[in-house]
């Protein structure tokens, strides 16, 4: 079997082994292996600072790995960096378009850089701008674009010459639901034309919607990998959230719930709220009945889909947002 094929003999877009990148003492990427088949969407799921962006930058030739090797679209990342660059495109976490220029100028610039002569650069730029629904904003400075428009322009710039592999770094972070749906539609359209997409996200539902396979990343390592169904199954049937009327009953409620669910019960920072993992949905009603039988009044309860936070809780035994707070404290 060829080294660049996966087990089903599909050609691989990315084949990486043991990637490591250190910034000083901090190991931002700490031994990542990847085998991503062509024509699929692969999701990196993880909190801020998990190493998603750094891994993407390595694979897009922007950073040299300290250890490990990788082949991207069949080309060695280091020895054939130029060949890799001509096959991939990157849209960064912070829109990598020029804010001072307008929409069409940004695309003309990229088209000229990709080798279009001046006149066809203009033609190609307006064609792509229209395809991404931005023709009305062609002459507007990007500074004045909404977050969603900026993101679309950013992806449009990557599509001037359709890459074989597109890196999308958190394409919907900070966007409203409508813009998020637009981006999702764009990603689906791209994949249908044969582009492989490597997408990073902090949202499980986004990975769920788009990605064929997902790698959960934490502290520069892949801690779980599989289809979204496989990941969710590992998390259990979701989470029971309970809010009590009286905060003084919370300790007792925690004890009752953990007995009824035979799972650890998490106390949230809100003094009346608790949550716990469910292994089966039916356990939820039994747990609520146990509270009722002990005269603990519940003001609100809900059954949640597993969130990224819960995936993390299950996989690492700690919450994903504690990581975010640490990041916040650092900056």
């Amino acid at each position: 079997m060829n080294n660049d094929m996966d087990t089903n003999n599909q050609p691989l877009a990315i084949k990486a082994t043991g990637l490591v990148k250190c910034f000083g003492k901090h190991r931002a990427v700490n031994g990542i292996d990847l085998a991503i088949p062509q024509g699929t969407v692969y999701g990196f799921l993880g909190p801020n600072g998990a190493g998603k962006t750094t891994t993407m930058k390595i694979l897009a030739t922007l950073l040299k790995p300290d250890e490990g090797q990788a082949k991207v679209m069949g080309h060695d990342l280091i020895k054939e960096a130029d060949a890799v660059r001509s096959r991939v495109s990157l849209t960064g976490q912070f829109a990598s378009v020029d804010e001072d220029l307008n929409g069409i100028e940004n695309l003309i610039l990229i088209a000229r850089l990709m080798g279009y002569p001046s006149r066809s650069a203009k033609k190609r730029a307006s064609e792509i701008l229209e395809a991404f629904g931005l023709q009305d904003a062609a002459k507007r400075q990007v500074k004045k674009y909404s977050g969603g428009m900026r993101r679309r322009l950013d992806i449009a710039a990557s599509m001037i010459v359709r890459p074989d592999l597109l890196f999308l770094d958190e394409p919907t972070t900070g966007l409203d639901p409508r813009s998020r749906n637009q981006i999702w539609d764009i990603v689906r359209a791209l994949v249908s034309t044969g582009t492989t997409v490597l997408l990073s996200t902090q949202y499980l539902d986004e990975a769920d919607q788009l990605a064929d396979r997902i790698a959960v990343i934490d502290h520069g390592k892949i801690i779980a990998e599989g289809t979204s169904g496989e990941l969710k199954a590992s998390v259990g049937s979701g989470v029971l959230h309970v809010r009590l009327l009286d905060p003084s009953t919370r300790d007792r409620a925690q004890q009752l719930l953990s007995e009824a669910l035979s799972a650890p019960v998490h106390l949230s920072s809100d003094p009346v709220a608790l949550s716990a993992q469910l292994t089966r949905t039916k356990a939820a009603s039994e747990a609520l009945a146990a509270l009722d039988a002990n005269q603990i009044e519940v003001s609100q309860f809900s059954l949640g889909q597993p969130s990224l936070d819960e995936v993390f809780l299950t996989l690492t035994g700690k919450r994903a947002d504690s990581e975010k707070q640490k990041e916040g404290a650092k900056s």
């Binding site: 930058k57 030739t61 922007l62 660059r85 991939v88 990157l90 912070f94 990229i110 850089l113």
Partner: peptide, 11 residues
């Protein structure tokens, strides 16, 4: 501003 990341990833 991150604009250069794109330029640097171009062939």
């Amino acid at each position: 501003k991150g604009t250069f990341d794109r330029f640097r990833s171009l062939p």
